[in-house]
C-alpha cells in the first residue's frame, strides 16, 4: 500500500491509498513513531483514496492519537468515505478523532 508522508515542521501530512492490511499497518506505525520521536506534534491523515482499513490500521491511528494526546498534540483525519467512513461510525471513532472534509 503506498503511503506518502510530508513533513512541515512539527506537523506531518500522511496520504493513505488503497487497502490497508496488517503488514501495511505495522509499517505505517513504525514510520509514524519515527516522526513522533523527532518531535512531531500534529498528524493529518488524508484518507480520501483509502478503500479499506481493518482493526490493525485503526489500531495504528488510535495508538498515535493516544500518544499525541499525552503530549498535547493531535491527529486530524480527512476525507473519510464509503466503508471506511462506515467503520468509523460503527466503532464511534468519529467521536474520538477530529474529522474534516468527510463525504
Amino acid at each position: 500500500m503506498p503511503v506518502d508522508i510530508e513533513k512541515h515542521g512539527e506537523r506531518i501530512v500522511v496520504q493513505l491509498d488503497g487497502q490497508m492490511y496488517v503488514p501495511d499497518a505495522a509499517m505505517l506505525r513504525e514510520r509514524l513513531l519515527q516522526y513522533m520521536d523527532k518531535g512531531v506534534q500534529e498528524v493529518e491523515v488524508n484518507m480520501r483514496q483509502l478503500d479499506f482499513i481493518d482493526s490493525a490500521g485503526l489500531g495504528v491511528l488510535i495508538g498515535i492519537h493516544k500518544r499525541l494526546l499525552e503530549r498535547g498534540g493531535h491527529v486530524t483525519l480527512r476525507g473519510l468515505r464509503g466503508s471506511v467512513k462506515e467503520l468509523f461510525t460503527l466503532t464511534r471513532l468519529d467521536k474520538v478523532f477530529e474529522i474534516k472534509d468527510s463525504d
Partner: peptide, 10 residues
Amino acid sequence: QVDSLYLGVA
C-alpha cells in the same frame, strides 16, 4: 449492527 466504541480508547 450497533454503534459502540472499543474498550481502552477513551
